[in-house]
């Protein structure tokens, strides 16, 4: 089967059809940026972008995504230059142990795109789709046990240019 990740096409021979996208990335392509926190779509640590939309890669079978563009944390930014969300996390100390961080960053990028398209969230009341409250609500699928949340909100706000 084939898998396109961060712009590069990979051919995986003899891949077990039960292999999740997360395990294909981590165990077969050695792209370990996407993390396994629960393997059940409950924590968000495995979040990657699939054709630009954020998904839990532990809940997707790799074999079903042969025509998709997968973007992982390793594929963000340009050579030597971090993506604005990555830069925001660095500037605001938006992490401690770092294990949820790649998922938080990919999720934030997907979320900013959703807000940019005008998609509402459960707390949307007006046109401001990126207030701190909106950011917190929209990011709540990504757990952080260290409790670095208060530093992630300004990191994401900065990346959004606010």
């Amino acid at each position: 089967m084939r898998l396109t990740v961060n712009g590069a096409q990979h051919h995986l021979v003899g891949l077990d059809p039960r292999t999740t996208l997360l395990d294909a990335l981590r165990e077969h392509l050695h792209l370990t940026g996407a993390k396994k926190g629960c393997d059940h779509g409950q924590c968000g640590a495995c979040t990657v972008l699939l054709d630009g939309r954020r998904v839990n890669s532990c809940l997707i079978l790799a074999i079903t995504q042969q025509d998709a563009e997968v973007t992982t944390v390793e594929g963000l930014g340009r050579r030597g230059e971090p993506h604005p969300v990555q830069q925001g996390f660095l500037d605001h100390d938006g992490f401690q142990c770092g294990y949820c961080t790649p998922g938080q960053i990919c999720s934030a990028i997907g979320m900013l795109d959703e807000a940019g398209k005008g998609w509402p969230s459960a707390v949307t009341e007006d046109d401001d789709l990126l207030s701190d409250r909106e950011i917190r609500e929209r990011m709540s699928g990504n757990l952080c046990r260290c409790g670095a949340y208060p530093a992630m909100v300004p990191a994401i706000r900065q990346a959004a240019g606010r």
């Binding site: 792209l31 370990t32 940026g33 996407a34 992982t72 944390v73 390793e74 963000l76 930014g77 971090p82 990555q86 996390f89 660095l90 100390d93 992490f95 770092g98 961080t101 790649p102 960053i105």
Partner: peptide, 9 residues
Amino acid sequence: EGPAKVSGA
């Protein structure tokens, strides 16, 4: 280790 943590390295 910040740059390594935000880049997946």
